[in-house]
């Protein structure tokens, strides 16, 4: 009976906790975050971003759902084929980031994604956009690093741009590789995030980049 009592108590408490809105929010977010990082197809990313948009509409003060929805749209831009469709996805991402920025000004993670959007704009049409958007994206990453020197995503994306630029000019990519190394170190030593919904992605991408460009 003691076990049954314990179980009942546990169920009871979990119900109380579940009833408090913040936990419902966290639970919904965690499940959606899991889905966005498992997504592979356009439909899956769209479904994930829809979930974040639903949560965002209800949680008018939360920057996290807007952040992850923007992330999904950035990835979707890589799955689109036509340049205008790519741009539309990036517009969608930017719209959400600007809304999130109002809720959490001076947020290094949001600025990192903004830089990511600029970076993907370059990819759409490097010849005519490279000069404008690569500068903007590097500026965003540098600002994001200045705000939080231990933001591994900002460091990693910055290293991407540094390596790409060095390669274009045929110069040595050691500066970018050093930045990437720093990013990887931060990833490896990362404890649990300050807020349970804070972004943690990027380690695999960083290791992949290292393998491709710095070894």
């Amino acid at each position: 009976m003691k076990i049954l009592d314990f179980l009942l108590c546990a169920v009871f408490f979990s119900l109380i906790v579940a009833a408090t809105p913040s936990d419902a929010y966290e639970k919904a977010m965690k499940s959606a975050i899991e889905k966005v990082f498992q997504a592979e197809t356009m439909e899956q990313y769209q479904a994930a971003s829809n979930t974040f948009d639903r949560i965002a509409e209800k949680e008018s003060k939360a920057w996290h759902p807007r952040y992850y929805s923007a992330y999904a749209h950035i990835i979707m831009s890589t799955l689109e084929k036509e340049p205008t469709a790519k741009d539309e996805q990036l517009d969608q991402a930017m719209e959400r980031l600007l809304a999130a920025d109002e809720l959490s000004p001076g947020n290094s993670e949001l600025l990192t994604l903004e830089g990511f959007v600029h970076m993907m704009r370059v990819v759409v049409d490097p010849a005519s956009r490279g000069a404008q958007y690569s500068g903007q994206s590097i500026a965003a990453f540098q600002k994001a690093v200045a705000m939080d020197p231990n933001n591994p995503r900002a460091l990693m994306l910055l290293s991407n741009m540094q390596i790409g630029t060095a390669r274009f000019f045929g110069s040595d990519s050691s500066e970018g590789c050093a930045t990437l190394e720093k990013a990887i170190k931060v990833f490896e030593n990362a404890g649990s995030p300050k807020h349970p919904l804070d972004p943690t992605w990027g380690k695999e991408m960083a290791l992949g980049n290292k393998k491709a460009s710095c070894q």
């Binding site: 769209q46 479904a47 829809n50 979930t51 639903r54 949560i55 509409e57 209800k58």
Partner: peptide, 8 residues
């Protein structure tokens, strides 16, 4: 509206 309940 105003819930998390929904789908795509």
């Amino acid at each position: 509206e105003d819930t998390y309940d929904g789908t795509s």
